[in-house]
Simulated scan of single mutants.
Amino acid sequence: MSGAMIVVYVLAALAVAEGVALVVLSLRLRARDEEIDALTRRLNTRANLLSGGREAVKQVWQTANIIRKEGLGAAVRTSIEDLADWAEVERPDLARLAPNGRIAILFSDIEESTALNERIGDRAWVRLIGRHDKMVSRHVKRHNGHVVKSQGDGFMIAFAESEDAVRCSIGMQHALSKRPNGIRVRIGIHVGKSVRRGDDLFGRNVAMAARVAAAADGGEILVSEPVRDAVSALDDIEFDAGREVELKGFSGTHRLYAVES
């Protein structure tokens, strides 16, 4: 056998060996990738279970809080009530938003939203809510507000100044009045001392703002007396004579004022 033939056979043998090695390496890499994918799925599943467990505990806590305050009959709740209960459980830090020591809290939701959803259907409702969210966010940003939480058709919004909260509300209602969708939003505002997590004053101020909003009619901006007093010097913001109302969870009656925009 010539030297050239020997070289050819050697090279062929080397090529076969390299091919086999590549196949083995490919199989090992594929097995490793499958192991990594399996491990990732297990980790994701564990994370989801942990997250779901935390959310479940949180939901139970919130439900227990509802039952403790309102009894077993509180099965149907508005977005405002849900947001207020979330805030009482979570206690978001609002003090950082209020350098002057006071914070205006605004709640809003769509009047009779469940009936509206049933009437127009889920797809149209999702589109409507999407447009509504963008409109609210636009006016909140324009008036230096901060969306603390949105849920369903409701919003909890914080402002460092009562004037900004009222002007934001007026802008929202004016924008809604130009739309043919017929939705009516009720808005309530209360201002109180800004406090940090764990302070009881936090709960009272948030609850008051939620109760004020719940007392409003669709298309109405209703404010507490401290809000009215804070902006009373402004010539371009006017209020009606006010009305005495009882607010759930608060003793006595409270005078609330509607913005005449």
Rank of each mutant, 00 (worst) to 15 (best):
R142E: 05
A158H: 15
T40C: 14
K248F: 08
L97G: 11
V23N: 05
V76R: 15
V20T: 06
E161Y: 13
S261E: 05
H132Q: 03
E163T: 00
A31C: 05
S2L: 00
V140E: 02
N205Y: 08
V259N: 04
L43R: 11
E225T: 04
S51P: 00
G198H: 03
A158K: 14
I183D: 00
G71C: 11
S194L: 10
V10W: 02
I105W: 13
R204L: 06
E34Y: 01
A233D: 14
K178C: 04
W125C: 06
S261W: 09
G53Q: 15
V147P: 03
W86L: 02
A165V: 01
G19R: 04
L116M: 10
D236W: 04
E70I: 01
M135Y: 03
R131Y: 03
L128D: 01
W61C: 05
R42T: 11
E88Y: 01
P180Y: 01
G71D: 01
L29P: 15
T114V: 10
A84M: 09
D33T: 04
S2Y: 00
V245P: 14
R102Q: 06
R119D: 07
S26A: 12
A13D: 07
G252S: 03
W61M: 07
L106C: 13
T45N: 12
G19P: 02
K178N: 13
D93H: 06
A175C: 07
I80V: 14
R197P: 14
I103C: 14
V23G: 10
R91S: 08
P99G: 08
I66E: 11
G154L: 11
A47D: 02
A175V: 07
A104C: 09
E88Q: 06
L94E: 10
A216R: 13
L11S: 11
E112G: 07
Y257W: 12
E35C: 02
R138G: 00
S169R: 04
D164H: 11
R179Q: 05
Q173G: 10
K69P: 00
R243P: 02
L97C: 09
E238M: 09
L14K: 12
R131D: 05
S51A: 06
A215E: 13
N181V: 08
R28H: 09
F250V: 03
R41S: 07
V60R: 01
K141D: 13
A215V: 09
M172E: 07
E81Y: 14
H132L: 12
G121R: 01
G3V: 06
G188F: 12
S251K: 15
I36V: 15
L14N: 10
L201N: 11
R228A: 10
M5W: 03
R28F: 03
E55N: 11
